[in-house]
Design a protein around this nucleic acid. Sequence first.
DNA 1: AATACCATCAACCGCGCTACT
DNA 2: GAGTAGCGCGGTTGATGGTAT
Length: 336
Amino acid sequence: MGRQPCCDKVGLKKGPWTAEEDKKLISFILTNGQCCWRAVPKLAGLLRCGKSCRLRWTNYLRPDLKRGLLSEYEEKMVIDLHAQLGNRWSKIASHLPGRTDNEIKNHWNTHIKKKLKKMGIDPATHKPLPNANEQNQNQTRQDQQLHHQPVELEEPNQQPLQVDFDPKVDPNKEPEKPETSLESSTITEEAKEEDQIITPLFDTMELMNGFCTDEVPIIEPHEILMPCAPSSSSTTSSSSSSNSTNFLEDLQLPDFEWSCNYNDNNTITNNNNNEDKDDDNNNNSSMALWDDDIIGNRYWLINEDDDSDENQVFDASLTQFSKMFMESESWGYGLF
DNA sequence: AATACCATCAACCGCGCTACT
DNA sequence: GAGTAGCGCGGTTGATGGTAT
């Protein structure tokens, strides 16, 4: 018997999400948490398939997402991780807090590939391109490697070219790859083993200094300035930038119980990891709710519709916000 | 100003994996 | 062990905005 379609496609909406749909999905998940995705659209009153809802949530609506262009340091991390993991975008994303596999994948295809080629590096193999004349051949080979596995080095001692994009990062402090990392990065190893190999590459503090403290200004709730869209905006696009409204303002954000702890370095105190994520759920209250993901990137929440009923739902829902964060799989980042 | 071309990225599609019965 | 359901992942597509002509 063949696989059933993920959803009954008849009558289901496709294409870009509208602000209204976003609100419904957010409201539902904030209220109920992430449960069975197949049931979400029905329960949330959405004419979408569960898969679409999950994608929308994980790639766009998730509150802990960091948006905007990847920093140079993040790019460097992506390149390093790609050299070890190949096109395993979700694995790569798991090492970049607030970034999604889709985002990283897109960034790789649109920016990093070009950058590497420009620098004479084969993005597929992470080795220097032999010469410009052979670039076309490499391109062809790269195109053939759609499902390429992590680089199998032809010569054991040959290391992928490491690219230091960020001059601010002290090269001396850059964690050295374990000697066995590439040899063992046949990636068929167990995930734990893999994490053990990769995680030490990116010291947590360095990571934080690398982009969190630089790019995530710590601001107090009262300092937040919500961008307001022109009232004439009539777009129905799900694009975050085009449908700013006053929805967030109605959320009475100051009533939030933010339990975010920053240390002296403005880094997020969070000791979560994949193994003890559940154990930490109850006692780890460190959440970066006031970093840019909520403030700078959640302006899609603002909506011109002054729908008091929905806002009430949100007000109630937001009290569960912290809990939802703790339950979110996204807090399994190995870096924390 | 109009059109063509290009770049970007959100969303979709199909497959694989895992858990459950 | 086989069948099924559900989720996650990676590749691809298509809409949109920007730039060049």
